[in-house]
Design a protein around this nucleic acid. Structure first.
Length: 334
DNA sequence: CAAGCGTGGTA
DNA sequence: TTACCAAGCTT
Protein backbone atom coordinates (compact mmCIF):
# COMPACT_ATOMS: atom_id res chain seq x y z
CA UNK A 1 0.00 0.00 0.00
CA UNK A 2 1.36 3.42 -0.89
CA UNK A 3 2.12 5.56 2.15
CA UNK A 4 -0.49 8.02 0.91
CA UNK A 5 -3.22 5.42 1.36
CA UNK A 6 -2.96 5.55 5.16
CA UNK A 7 -3.26 9.32 4.93
CA UNK A 8 -6.26 9.07 2.63
CA UNK A 9 -7.90 6.73 5.08
CA UNK A 10 -7.23 9.01 8.07
CA UNK A 11 -8.59 12.01 6.17
CA UNK A 12 -11.74 10.06 5.46
CA UNK A 13 -11.93 8.99 9.12
CA UNK A 14 -11.59 12.61 10.29
CA UNK A 15 -14.75 13.42 8.40
CA UNK A 16 -16.76 10.19 8.82
CA UNK A 17 -15.77 8.55 12.12
CA UNK A 18 -18.75 7.06 13.91
CA UNK A 19 -19.38 8.54 17.35
CA UNK A 20 -19.27 5.64 19.80
CA UNK A 21 -19.43 5.83 23.61
CA UNK A 22 -15.97 4.29 24.11
CA UNK A 23 -14.30 6.37 21.42
CA UNK A 24 -12.70 9.81 21.50
CA UNK A 25 -13.07 12.08 18.45
CA UNK A 26 -10.42 11.71 15.71
CA UNK A 27 -7.15 13.40 16.60
CA UNK A 28 -8.09 14.00 20.24
CA UNK A 29 -6.37 12.50 23.32
CA UNK A 30 -6.99 8.78 23.79
CA UNK A 31 -9.90 7.52 25.91
CA UNK A 32 -9.56 5.86 29.32
CA UNK A 33 -7.73 2.52 28.84
CA UNK A 34 -10.46 0.89 30.93
CA UNK A 35 -13.10 1.99 28.41
CA UNK A 36 -10.97 0.85 25.50
CA UNK A 37 -10.27 -2.56 26.99
CA UNK A 38 -13.87 -3.12 28.10
CA UNK A 39 -15.31 -2.15 24.73
CA UNK A 40 -12.79 -4.25 22.82
CA UNK A 41 -13.59 -7.36 24.84
CA UNK A 42 -17.32 -6.75 24.42
CA UNK A 43 -16.87 -6.25 20.68
CA UNK A 44 -15.15 -9.63 20.18
CA UNK A 45 -17.48 -11.33 17.68
CA UNK A 46 -20.29 -9.02 18.76
CA UNK A 47 -21.86 -6.16 16.83
CA UNK A 48 -21.58 -2.46 17.71
CA UNK A 49 -25.39 -2.29 17.89
CA UNK A 50 -25.52 -5.01 20.52
CA UNK A 51 -22.57 -3.73 22.53
CA UNK A 52 -23.46 -0.02 22.74
CA UNK A 53 -26.30 -0.11 25.30
CA UNK A 54 -24.64 -2.89 27.29
CA UNK A 55 -21.37 -0.94 27.46
CA UNK A 56 -23.21 2.08 28.84
CA UNK A 57 -24.79 -0.05 31.55
CA UNK A 58 -21.50 -1.63 32.54
CA UNK A 59 -19.56 1.62 32.93
CA UNK A 60 -22.46 3.21 34.77
CA UNK A 61 -22.45 0.39 37.28
CA UNK A 62 -18.65 0.05 37.44
CA UNK A 63 -17.08 3.39 36.36
CA UNK A 64 -13.50 2.28 37.02
CA UNK A 65 -11.54 -0.94 36.72
CA UNK A 66 -11.09 -0.91 40.49
CA UNK A 67 -14.86 -0.94 40.90
CA UNK A 68 -15.18 -3.79 38.42
CA UNK A 69 -12.38 -5.72 40.11
CA UNK A 70 -14.21 -5.43 43.44
CA UNK A 71 -17.51 -6.76 42.07
CA UNK A 72 -18.61 -10.32 42.93
CA UNK A 73 -18.32 -12.82 40.06
CA UNK A 74 -22.06 -13.47 39.92
CA UNK A 75 -22.86 -9.78 39.54
CA UNK A 76 -20.58 -9.44 36.52
CA UNK A 77 -21.91 -12.64 34.95
CA UNK A 78 -25.47 -11.35 35.41
CA UNK A 79 -24.57 -8.13 33.59
CA UNK A 80 -23.05 -10.21 30.78
CA UNK A 81 -26.14 -12.42 30.37
CA UNK A 82 -27.36 -12.45 26.77
CA UNK A 83 -24.08 -11.22 25.31
CA UNK A 84 -22.74 -14.71 24.56
CA UNK A 85 -19.25 -16.17 24.63
CA UNK A 86 -19.32 -16.23 28.41
CA UNK A 87 -15.62 -17.12 28.71
CA UNK A 88 -15.14 -13.43 27.93
CA UNK A 89 -16.92 -12.48 31.15
CA UNK A 90 -14.84 -14.92 33.19
CA UNK A 91 -11.65 -13.54 31.62
CA UNK A 92 -12.93 -10.00 32.14
CA UNK A 93 -13.17 -10.57 35.89
CA UNK A 94 -9.72 -12.16 36.09
CA UNK A 95 -8.17 -9.41 33.98
CA UNK A 96 -9.79 -6.60 35.97
CA UNK A 97 -8.44 -7.99 39.23
CA UNK A 98 -4.97 -8.48 37.82
CA UNK A 99 -4.85 -4.95 36.40
CA UNK A 100 -6.31 -3.39 39.55
CA UNK A 101 -3.74 -5.20 41.66
CA UNK A 102 -0.85 -3.91 39.57
CA UNK A 103 -2.22 -0.37 39.56
CA UNK A 104 -3.26 -0.01 35.92
CA UNK A 105 -2.92 -1.42 32.42
CA UNK A 106 0.59 -2.01 31.08
CA UNK A 107 1.06 0.27 28.07
CA UNK A 108 2.97 -2.18 25.88
CA UNK A 109 1.39 -4.64 23.47
CA UNK A 110 3.55 -7.52 24.68
CA UNK A 111 2.55 -7.02 28.33
CA UNK A 112 -1.11 -6.53 27.44
CA UNK A 113 -1.00 -9.78 25.49
CA UNK A 114 -0.29 -11.69 28.72
CA UNK A 115 -3.54 -10.60 30.38
CA UNK A 116 -6.48 -13.04 30.37
CA UNK A 117 -8.81 -12.57 27.41
CA UNK A 118 -6.40 -10.40 25.43
CA UNK A 119 -5.27 -12.14 22.26
CA UNK A 120 -3.30 -10.75 19.34
CA UNK A 121 -6.08 -8.46 18.18
CA UNK A 122 -7.20 -6.99 21.50
CA UNK A 123 -3.68 -6.43 22.84
CA UNK A 124 -2.76 -4.53 19.67
CA UNK A 125 -6.00 -2.55 19.70
CA UNK A 126 -5.62 -1.42 23.31
CA UNK A 127 -1.94 -0.57 22.79
CA UNK A 128 -2.74 1.52 19.72
CA UNK A 129 -6.03 3.13 20.76
CA UNK A 130 -5.44 3.71 24.48
CA UNK A 131 -1.65 4.23 24.49
CA UNK A 132 -0.80 5.47 21.01
CA UNK A 133 1.61 2.61 20.36
CA UNK A 134 2.37 1.63 16.79
CA UNK A 135 0.74 -1.79 17.04
CA UNK A 136 -0.47 -3.72 14.01
CA UNK A 137 -4.19 -4.19 14.57
CA UNK A 138 -5.81 -6.94 12.51
CA UNK A 139 -9.41 -8.05 12.91
CA UNK A 140 -11.62 -9.60 10.23
CA UNK A 141 -12.49 -6.15 8.88
CA UNK A 142 -8.85 -5.16 8.46
CA UNK A 143 -7.97 -8.53 6.95
CA UNK A 144 -10.78 -8.24 4.41
CA UNK A 145 -9.87 -4.64 3.50
CA UNK A 146 -6.25 -5.62 2.91
CA UNK A 147 -7.14 -8.79 0.99
CA UNK A 148 -9.23 -6.70 -1.38
CA UNK A 149 -6.90 -3.76 -1.63
CA UNK A 150 -3.97 -6.03 -2.47
CA UNK A 151 -6.03 -8.47 -4.52
CA UNK A 152 -5.32 -11.51 -2.33
CA UNK A 153 -7.92 -14.11 -3.17
CA UNK A 154 -6.81 -16.94 -0.85
CA UNK A 155 -8.79 -17.65 2.30
CA UNK A 156 -7.76 -15.53 5.29
CA UNK A 157 -6.40 -18.67 6.94
CA UNK A 158 -4.08 -19.23 4.00
CA UNK A 159 -3.00 -15.60 3.58
CA UNK A 160 -2.62 -14.79 7.29
CA UNK A 161 1.15 -14.10 7.22
CA UNK A 162 0.88 -12.18 3.96
CA UNK A 163 -1.94 -10.02 5.32
CA UNK A 164 0.11 -9.25 8.43
CA UNK A 165 3.07 -8.08 6.32
CA UNK A 166 0.85 -5.72 4.36
CA UNK A 167 -0.83 -4.46 7.54
CA UNK A 168 2.54 -3.81 9.16
CA UNK A 169 3.74 -1.95 6.07
CA UNK A 170 0.74 0.35 5.97
CA UNK A 171 0.41 1.12 9.73
CA UNK A 172 1.59 4.69 10.36
CA UNK A 173 3.70 5.86 13.29
CA UNK A 174 1.43 8.86 13.69
CA UNK A 175 -2.11 8.19 14.98
CA UNK A 176 -1.94 4.37 14.90
CA UNK A 177 -5.07 4.14 17.04
CA UNK A 178 -7.15 6.28 14.70
CA UNK A 179 -5.73 4.34 11.77
CA UNK A 180 -6.85 1.03 13.29
CA UNK A 181 -10.32 2.35 13.93
CA UNK A 182 -10.47 3.88 10.46
CA UNK A 183 -9.67 0.49 8.91
CA UNK A 184 -12.33 -1.20 11.01
CA UNK A 185 -14.93 1.47 10.23
CA UNK A 186 -14.12 1.06 6.56
CA UNK A 187 -14.57 -2.70 6.74
CA UNK A 188 -17.79 -2.41 8.74
CA UNK A 189 -19.53 0.26 6.70
CA UNK A 190 -18.00 0.39 3.19
CA UNK A 191 -15.77 -2.60 2.47
CA UNK A 192 -18.46 -4.96 3.76
CA UNK A 193 -18.35 -8.74 3.25
CA UNK A 194 -21.28 -8.54 0.83
CA UNK A 195 -22.19 -5.69 -1.50
CA UNK A 196 -19.20 -3.45 -0.76
CA UNK A 197 -19.87 0.25 -1.40
CA UNK A 198 -16.83 0.80 -3.60
CA UNK A 199 -18.21 4.01 -5.12
CA UNK A 200 -17.70 5.87 -1.84
CA UNK A 201 -14.51 4.11 -0.70
CA UNK A 202 -11.47 6.33 -0.09
CA UNK A 203 -9.18 3.50 -1.25
CA UNK A 204 -10.98 2.61 -4.46
CA UNK A 205 -8.45 4.21 -6.80
CA UNK A 206 -5.75 1.63 -6.05
CA UNK A 207 -7.91 -1.35 -5.04
CA UNK A 208 -6.90 -4.49 -6.95
CA UNK A 209 -10.09 -6.39 -6.08
CA UNK A 210 -12.21 -3.56 -7.48
CA UNK A 211 -10.03 -3.51 -10.60
CA UNK A 212 -10.73 -7.22 -11.04
CA UNK A 213 -14.42 -6.43 -11.40
CA UNK A 214 -15.66 -8.67 -8.58
CA UNK A 215 -14.43 -7.21 -5.28
CA UNK A 216 -16.87 -9.25 -3.19
CA UNK A 217 -15.08 -12.42 -4.27
CA UNK A 218 -12.09 -11.34 -2.16
CA UNK A 219 -11.12 -13.04 0.08
CA UNK A 220 -12.33 -16.59 -0.64
CA UNK A 221 -14.39 -18.20 2.12
CA UNK A 222 -14.18 -21.83 3.10
CA UNK A 223 -17.34 -23.88 3.46
CA UNK A 224 -18.66 -24.44 6.94
CA UNK A 225 -19.36 -27.83 8.41
CA UNK A 226 -22.97 -28.79 8.88
CA UNK A 227 -24.23 -28.16 12.38
CA UNK A 228 -25.36 -31.32 14.24
CA UNK A 229 -28.62 -31.38 16.15
CA UNK A 230 -28.68 -32.15 19.86
CA UNK A 231 -31.28 -32.57 22.56
CA UNK A 232 -31.42 -31.39 26.14
CA UNK A 233 -33.73 -31.53 29.13
CA UNK A 234 -34.49 -28.70 31.54
CA UNK A 235 -36.51 -29.06 34.74
CA UNK A 236 -39.19 -26.48 35.49
CA UNK A 237 -39.48 -26.60 39.28
CA UNK A 238 -41.97 -24.09 40.61
CA UNK A 239 -42.95 -23.45 44.21
CA UNK A 240 -44.65 -20.46 45.87
CA UNK A 241 -44.11 -18.17 42.90
CA UNK A 242 -40.43 -19.03 42.52
CA UNK A 243 -38.34 -21.16 40.14
CA UNK A 244 -35.42 -23.38 41.12
CA UNK A 245 -32.25 -22.25 39.35
CA UNK A 246 -28.71 -23.62 39.41
CA UNK A 247 -25.31 -22.35 38.33
CA UNK A 248 -23.62 -24.18 35.47
CA UNK A 249 -20.07 -25.52 35.81
CA UNK A 250 -17.42 -22.85 35.30
CA UNK A 251 -16.12 -24.39 32.07
CA UNK A 252 -17.85 -25.43 28.88
CA UNK A 253 -21.13 -24.26 27.37
CA UNK A 254 -22.65 -21.28 29.18
CA UNK A 255 -19.98 -21.79 31.83
CA UNK A 256 -20.68 -20.13 35.15
CA UNK A 257 -24.10 -18.88 34.11
CA UNK A 258 -27.44 -19.26 35.87
CA UNK A 259 -29.63 -21.99 34.35
CA UNK A 260 -32.59 -24.28 34.70
CA UNK A 261 -31.33 -27.59 36.13
CA UNK A 262 -31.03 -30.63 33.89
CA UNK A 263 -28.71 -33.39 32.69
CA UNK A 264 -25.99 -32.86 30.10
CA UNK A 265 -27.17 -32.47 26.53
CA UNK A 266 -26.83 -35.37 24.13
CA UNK A 267 -27.92 -36.89 20.84
CA UNK A 268 -31.04 -38.63 22.11
CA UNK A 269 -34.52 -37.29 22.75
CA UNK A 270 -35.34 -37.31 26.49
CA UNK A 271 -38.03 -39.84 27.37
CA UNK A 272 -39.76 -37.88 30.13
CA UNK A 273 -43.18 -36.27 29.67
CA UNK A 274 -42.45 -32.74 28.48
CA UNK A 275 -44.44 -29.53 28.78
CA UNK A 276 -42.78 -27.70 25.91
CA UNK A 277 -39.64 -27.56 23.83
CA UNK A 278 -37.67 -24.79 22.22
CA UNK A 279 -34.99 -24.69 19.53
CA UNK A 280 -31.84 -22.69 19.94
CA UNK A 281 -28.92 -22.27 17.56
CA UNK A 282 -25.40 -22.28 18.91
CA UNK A 283 -22.24 -21.73 16.90
CA UNK A 284 -21.52 -25.38 16.20
CA UNK A 285 -24.79 -27.21 16.89
CA UNK A 286 -28.47 -26.61 17.29
CA UNK A 287 -30.22 -27.62 20.47
CA UNK A 288 -33.77 -28.72 21.06
CA UNK A 289 -34.38 -28.13 24.74
CA UNK A 290 -37.26 -30.10 26.21
CA UNK A 291 -38.85 -28.69 29.34
CA UNK A 292 -40.50 -30.90 31.95
CA UNK A 293 -42.13 -30.14 35.28
CA UNK A 294 -40.80 -31.58 38.49
CA UNK A 295 -41.77 -31.10 42.12
CA UNK A 296 -38.53 -31.39 44.06
CA UNK A 297 -35.41 -29.25 43.62
CA UNK A 298 -32.36 -30.92 42.08
CA UNK A 299 -28.74 -30.12 42.92
CA UNK A 300 -27.33 -26.98 44.48
CA UNK A 301 -29.34 -23.92 43.61
CA UNK A 302 -31.75 -21.23 44.75
CA UNK A 303 -35.36 -20.15 44.46
CA UNK A 304 -35.68 -17.24 42.05
CA UNK A 305 -38.96 -15.32 42.40
CA UNK A 306 -40.82 -15.34 39.07
CA UNK A 307 -41.40 -11.60 39.47
CA UNK A 308 -37.63 -11.14 39.41
CA UNK A 309 -36.69 -13.78 36.85
CA UNK A 310 -35.37 -11.12 34.48
CA UNK A 311 -32.72 -10.18 37.03
CA UNK A 312 -31.44 -13.74 37.39
CA UNK A 313 -28.99 -13.28 34.54
CA UNK A 314 -30.20 -16.23 32.47
CA UNK A 315 -28.45 -16.70 29.13
CA UNK A 316 -30.75 -16.51 26.14
CA UNK A 317 -31.38 -20.26 25.89
CA UNK A 318 -32.87 -20.43 29.39
CA UNK A 319 -34.54 -17.03 29.15
CA UNK A 320 -36.37 -18.39 26.10
CA UNK A 321 -37.33 -21.57 27.95
CA UNK A 322 -38.64 -19.63 30.93
CA UNK A 323 -40.51 -17.25 28.65
CA UNK A 324 -42.22 -20.16 26.94
CA UNK A 325 -43.32 -21.72 30.22
CA UNK A 326 -44.60 -18.44 31.66
CA UNK A 327 -46.49 -17.70 28.47
CA UNK A 328 -48.24 -21.07 28.68
CA UNK A 329 -49.13 -20.33 32.26
CA UNK A 330 -50.75 -17.04 31.31
CA UNK A 331 -52.71 -18.68 28.53
CA UNK A 332 -54.01 -21.32 30.93
CA UNK A 333 -54.95 -18.67 33.48
CA UNK A 334 -56.84 -16.61 30.92
C1' DC B 1 -4.27 -25.40 13.84
C1' DA B 2 -8.87 -26.51 13.95
C1' DA B 3 -12.52 -26.84 17.00
C1' DG B 4 -15.25 -25.02 20.78
C1' DC B 5 -17.58 -21.17 22.32
C1' DG B 6 -23.60 -17.30 21.88
C1' DT B 7 -26.45 -14.35 20.01
C1' DG B 8 -28.99 -11.31 16.95
C1' DG B 9 -29.34 -9.05 12.47
C1' DT B 10 -29.52 -9.24 7.50
C1' DA B 11 -30.47 -10.94 2.88
C1' DT C 1 -36.01 -20.19 6.03
C1' DT C 2 -31.47 -21.11 5.86
C1' DA C 3 -26.98 -19.16 5.72
C1' DC C 4 -23.78 -15.98 6.76
C1' DC C 5 -21.47 -13.06 9.73
C1' DA C 6 -19.80 -9.76 13.73
C1' DA C 7 -13.68 -4.90 16.73
C1' DG C 8 -11.63 -13.24 18.65
C1' DC C 9 -9.66 -16.11 22.50
C1' DT C 10 -8.31 -20.55 24.29
C1' DT C 11 -6.85 -25.18 24.03
Amino acid sequence: MPASAAKQLLDHYDRHARALPWRSPPGSPPPDPYFVWLSEVMLQQTTVATVTPRFRRLIERWPTIDALAAAPDEEVLMEWAGLGYYARARNLIACAREVAARGGFPPSESELRKLPGLGAYTAAAVAAIAFGARAVVIDTNVARVIARYRGIKQTLQESRDDIRKHADAMTPTDRPGDFAQAMMDLGATICRPRRPACSICPLSADCLALASGAPEEFPATKLKRERPHRHGLAWWIERDGAIWLVRRPARGMLGGMAALPGPEWGDDVPTVQRQASISHGFTHFTLELHIARRAEPVGEGWWQPIDHLAEAGLPTLYAKAAGTMLERKEVLAA
